Simulated scan of single mutants.
Amino acid sequence: MPSIQLLPGAISELLATVKDTRSITQADRYGLMAAIMDETLCEEDRFCLDRLLRSLYRGRIQVVDEVSTVL
């Protein structure tokens, strides 16, 4: 199985984007999946992911079928 590596700052960028748009795109979901599968995440990034997942679960973030919010 190929290893998945996140870009530096990917978690904080994902959080900032989702916070601004209140939505998560297909690209964001792939980034989220990669982050969840990364066993080397620091505690701070893991905490941020947990916050994001709780927000999704509680319906505070809308899941959209767009590939990206960047035009």
Rank of each mutant, 00 (worst) to 15 (best):
C48A: 14
L6S: 06
R60F: 00
I61P: 02
E44V: 06
S55F: 03
R51S: 05
M33A: 08
L49E: 09
C42R: 02
A34Y: 13
Q5T: 11
D50F: 13
S55N: 00
G9I: 15
E39D: 12
E66T: 13
C48F: 10
L41A: 05
A27F: 04
T25M: 09
A10F: 08
M33Y: 07
P8D: 09
L15W: 07
L52Q: 03
C48L: 15
T25K: 08
I24D: 07
T69I: 15
T69M: 15
A35Q: 03
L32P: 04
L71E: 15
L7M: 14
V64Y: 06
A10Y: 06
L56V: 02
I36V: 11
V67M: 15
L14E: 02
P8E: 11
A35N: 04
G59Y: 03
M1E: 13
E43H: 12
A16H: 04
P2E: 11
M33C: 05
A16C: 03
R60H: 02
L49R: 07
I36F: 07
S68E: 13
V63Q: 09
E39R: 10
G59M: 04
L52S: 05
L53V: 10
D20R: 14
T21K: 12
S12F: 04
V63P: 01
I61R: 03
G31H: 00
R51L: 12
E66Y: 12
L32S: 05
I11F: 04
D50L: 11
K19Y: 06
C48E: 11
V63K: 08
T40S: 13
I11A: 01
I4Q: 12
C42L: 01
R46F: 06
L15T: 09
T69W: 13
D20W: 08
C48M: 14
P8G: 01
C42F: 01
Q5I: 10
R58M: 02
G31T: 01
S68K: 08
T21S: 13
E66A: 14
Q5C: 11
E13F: 11
Q26A: 10
S23D: 04
V63G: 00
C42D: 14
V67I: 15
P2H: 12
Q5V: 11
V18H: 05
A35H: 02
T69A: 13
E13D: 15
C48D: 15
Y57T: 00
S23Y: 00
P8V: 06
G59H: 00
A27K: 02
Y30P: 01
V18F: 00
R58N: 00
R58Y: 02
L15A: 09
G59W: 06
I61M: 04
S12M: 03
P2Q: 10
E39A: 12
L71Y: 11
M33L: 08
I11L: 03
L49H: 10
I61W: 00
A34R: 14
R58F: 03
R29K: 08
E39F: 07
R29Y: 05
A10M: 09
A16K: 09
S12N: 02
G59V: 02
R60A: 03
P2K: 12
A35S: 03
L53T: 03
D65G: 11
V18A: 07
E13G: 13
L7Q: 15
L49I: 10
S55T: 00
D20Y: 10
A34V: 11
S3M: 11
